[in-house]
Design a protein around this nucleic acid. Structure first.
Lengths: 224, 224, 224, 224
DNA sequence: GATGAATGAGGCTTCATTCAT
DNA sequence: GATGAATGAAGCCTCATTCAT
């Protein structure tokens, strides 16, 4: 099975998943809700977090007012502070829950072959970045500065598992081609992938998300 | 001459340049000042632009107050508006001048062999990102949203030449390995490189900027 | 009943009304408050409008700061913007509410004979101008320029009814004496009356408001 | 000679004057310049005063910046203060010079018959108000408040003569019709006339300035 | 839990005025 | 006389946050 056929297999699987995407995603999120790891998306807290995630991503943390968020949910701004101590904690909680969902998806995307596994990581993160699954993911990078040192610590802890999945996938690459250091490769990939948020719009025609994932894979796992 | 020796040559040249860096950089900037393309760094306008660039990069545009900028230059906040219509124009002018300096450096970094040329592009952008030469470069990406539509247009026009140098360098790559589409490769590289601002600190020991450039080159021009 | 006796009758009635003025005025305003046409003078919005009206009239719109207004009401300047989008809307709302009160008073001042009716209009507007009943009325003329085009439209619509009462009263004048064109007469009268704000202070001794009204009547309805 | 023919005569004369208006006006102003009563309109001081008059009238004193005025004359704002101690003195000087020109015109407009004389006063003031002769005249009323108490005193002194011409003309009216008190009549007329600035635009067709003057005359000198 | 009024600090911007050159 | 850079006070407005109801 050459690399090309590996990619095909993964992508088919991916398309299949995409078709029933919402269903399986919901199941995954439902599990996290059940364990209390993320908030019920229909409860007031969950709705606030979703609204905040959407707006922080769209306009930026500093440019989003608590009024904007409250309006999106249909409450008054003062009421937000019954759920979150302050605006920064809202951002922090958004990041934490986004991390948890992203990690759960990543864990669920395991693949047999090393290359398929790495490709799955890339695709998984691209889906997160482009809002197909984890609204708010780009915030983890773009609004990092807006977090207090303490909150950064908390989010960093939460993301550890997520990053370890990446590193594990990168370490299974064969030696001798491309960037050897997996930590370095991961950082470069993260930058490349997150930045795609500003220029890539997934389409049926033209460059699909899966095709993009395949190209990104080439950056750290060149063919031949 | 294999690719490894090419890289060595470029890097040596780079180190040499880096040593007398400030001198040659000053010459380059002096030329731009002479033609009026960038402001005199010792004049009030140039000092404001430098201070703004530093602060926008460090704290973000929205988090930087005009008082911060004025204080850095040693004037009162009201005086800023003798030089710039408003805060957004200050950002816009920072981006324009940063673009011009970056383009001039890029143009000056031409190399013989295609690989050396691409490596020079990467190194050149890394130096810009990490403030060795063009303070404020990451703002071009991170604060893009803070610009009005009209200003975005102006900066985009100014950056065109810069990007065309990149594309030309990428198109000289041999076919058959890595990402074929140069436009796509450029976008992914830009993300990877700019994001390095958040984790890479150039050091003598450990990962040098030149070594990082070499690794990044592998993402779009794999050995063999 | 000659014109002299008509005037006497109206004035007596006017004096009588003036004596219990506040009571009947309050009733009139209370009616408007009940229908929501003007704000409750004891609520925060109404108090802001009154303070603004007083200050805009006394010092002019541009010369009045939002802090002045807030101080008059005993709140901080920022709090104003919970009630009005900006300073100009405050002016616009002042004008709208002033117009409504003035119109209601005008409508309530109907008289039998044409001359008495016109005199009542004059007296009514004089009372408004001199703050006996509608604080802020002169602003309608003096600060017209400070209003945006859109706000001017709104206020103009609101004033239409008020002006139509004037025109109707002027049209009942006999032909052949004085200014024939009622529209023209109204404009000249408005100027004459509003300007009285700068030189006329109603007093018991000397020129009373009623006497002044009688003199103004002569400008458009000469005796004999 | 009935009142109608009187008006005709005055108006013919007026039209004649209007035709060679600029010439005779220039002569009049030239005389004032010669005696130092008003500034040379071509000198820097005179040009500043004219620009200020125009802008104060168009936008209001508070809404006009010294930069606006300087720009209109083609100098920088700082230079204004070589000619006037501060912005308020600029306003005061505008008013003083406007008063002097208006007085000179008024004095030159003497007529034989009492009615023609009063009509000439009205027409003369209307011409001043509508910028045909004395740009800035409405400022005397509209920006009175913007003047310090001391400046008000100075301008008041200057205007005394002008007002005395009016009073003299009004006192020659026959007793028994219209407003008896000339001081009162003058104040009402001033209001009516100045306010015309906001609604009257002199035209050949429709209401001419002369026709308007005739109508205003009726307010204080009714026919029959 | 929600409301809405208020807070108070702070942001950007304007502008008359000064002054060395 | 003019310039242009700077001042510094003040203006309007925003917004996270608080709190009595």
């Amino acid at each position: 099975m050459n690399s090309e056929s590996v990619k095909k297999a993964v992508m088919n699987e991916a398309s299949a998943k995409a078709r029933k995407g919402t269903a399986s995603e919901r199941k995954l999120v439902a599990g996290l809700v059940a364990t209390g790891e993320v908030s019920d998306p229909d409860g007031p807290r969950g709705r606030l977090l979703h609204a905040a995630a959407r707006l922080f991503q769209e306009k930026g943390f500093a440019q989003t007012t608590v009024r904007d968020i409250a309006a999106e949910v249909g409450i008054l701004s003062g009421s937000i502070f019954h759920h979150f101590r302050n605006k920064e904690e809202l951002l922090c909680q958004v990041m934490l829950e986004v991390s948890r969902v992203a990690t759960a998806r990543m864990a669920a995307a395991a693949q047999e072959s090393p290359q398929a596994r790495l490709l799955a990581c890339i695709r998984c993160e691209l889906e997160a970045i482009h809002g197909l699954a984890v609204p708010g993911f780009p915030i983890l990078v773009s609004e990092w500065r807006s977090l207090s040192a303490e909150s950064q610590r908390r989010v960093l802890d939460e993301r550890e598992h997520y990053e370890s999945i990446w590193i594990a996938a990168l370490q299974r690459r064969p030696a001798g081609v491309g960037i050897a250091d997996s930590q370095l490769a991961r950082k470069l990939l993260l930058g490349a992938l997150v930045h795609s948020h500003s220029w890539f719009k997934p389409r049926r025609r033209g460059l699909t998300l899966e095709a993009l994932a395949g190209q990104v894979l080439l950056m750290v796992w060149p063919d031949q």
